[in-house]
């Protein structure tokens, strides 16, 4: 079993941050806001995966980050290419290239598992998305196991575990005085070579406390429930905002637009950008001319649950939800995916 002392890990991270971009969980925002607020986001600093300069900026005690790891592989906005005019007056396209290797430290196992879902969608079928592919190839994932399942987590009900090593290159598990290190992939091995790992004979690994597991609806139950009034009833309180989609590690919908910006220096840049979008948005399906095949709110809400648990498994052979619990916590009207899943799973087979 491999082991690294806390101090040695910090020193390694400090060195690493000098060499390449290091993304890690870090606290963001004003320190004191409204500690008693009913809105968990307003209570104090939130933790995000952000680029850090060293170990001192890393948040070590965090539950889950406010946004998932997805924002570093499918950024909220990215330029696909810029459109320039060549010397002959003809348009020239300059595609964005993302070559720089980087380390993503402290990713939670559920977030890493979320990348497996994005991989299936963005890379699993030709043609692959080159922007996502470059970011994915250039990134080594160092996972940080959860010491326990947090409130609202349900990874163990959807096939994950708080200390799963399946989707990372290296997994760290906190133990007395440091971290147990599992090197999972060849990519991880290359990175671990510089970590100065110790070989120890025996290491007592903690058993993370798990939340109660629940059964998921069967495919038949999903099929039979599609036109049920149930969706209208859950949709009653839905606000049709996009929080659930945007905090989700596996949502991937995007919009594409051209835009022209003028920099403060007066430079005119024409570019095609893509940005996150959500099936919960009112205009998501609106066609030019105004037709909206998903005009009712409950149709949009229903789509999100079916996408995770029915469409993605069929279309991309991947589980669409990793049980991170972010949508549960962030939904302002308490639409709780666990409740929906359990409601459907309780139904009599049709």
């Amino acid at each position: 079993m491999k082991f690294i002392e806390t101090r040695a890990l910090h020193e390694w991270l400090d060195r690493l941050a000098q060499e390449m971009p290091l993304i890690a969980p870090t606290a963001v925002g004003p320190q004191e806001k409204a500690p008693g607020s009913r809105n968990p986001a307003a209570q104090g600093q939130q933790v995000f995966y952000r680029e850090v300069e060293g170990a001192a900026q890393i948040a070590w005690d965090f539950t889950r980050t406010a946004l998932s790891a997805r924002e570093h592989f499918m950024p909220k906005t990215e330029t696909l290419f810029t459109i320039e005019t060549g010397p002959d007056g003809k348009a020239v396209l300059h595609e964005t290239k993302l070559a720089q290797p980087r380390v993503f430290f402290g990713i939670r196992p559920c977030d890493a598992r979320g990348l497996r879902v994005l991989d299936a969608v963005m890379l699993g079928q030709e043609p692959a998305d080159v922007y996502y592919a470059q970011r994915r190839q250039n990134t080594t994932l160092v996972g940080l196991a959860c010491p326990q399942m947090w409130e609202d987590c349900f990874c163990n009900s959807v096939g994950g575990a708080p200390d799963a090593a399946d989707d990372v290159d290296i997994l760290l598990i906190q133990v007395e005085g440091g971290f147990a290190v599992q090197v999972v992939t060849a990519k991880g091995e290359r990175l671990a070579a510089g970590m100065g790992l110790q070989e120890v004979e025996r290491l007592e690994l903690p058993q993370p406390k798990l939340n109660e597991q629940f059964a998921l609806p069967t495919q038949q139950q999903w099929l039979a429930s599609f036109n049920d009034v149930y969706w209208q009833r859950v949709g009653d309180r839905c606000l049709s905002c996009r929080i659930c989609s945007y905090v989700c590690p596996t949502c991937r919908c995007f919009d594409v637009r051209d835009e022209t910006v003028v920099t403060p220096q007066g430079e005119r840049i024409v570019r095609r950008v893509r940005a996150w979008d959500s099936c919960q948005g009112v205009n998501y399906r609106v066609q030019a001319g105004g037709a909206n095949p998903r005009a009712n709110l409950e149709q949009r809400l229903r789509n999100r649950f079916y996408c995770k648990y029915y469409y993605v498994p069929i279309d991309y052979a991947a589980d669409g939800c990793v049980g991170c619990g972010r949508c549960v916590i962030a939904c302002p009207v308490n639409i709780d995916i666990r409740e929906v899943l359990q409601d459907l799973a309780r139904r009599e087979p049709a």
Binding site: V121, R252, C253, F254, D277, Y284, R285, Y311
Partner: peptide
């Protein structure tokens, strides 16, 4: 190409 999710 089946990525943007929109047309399902």
């Amino acid at each position: 190409i089946g990525k943007c999710g929109r047309c399902n």
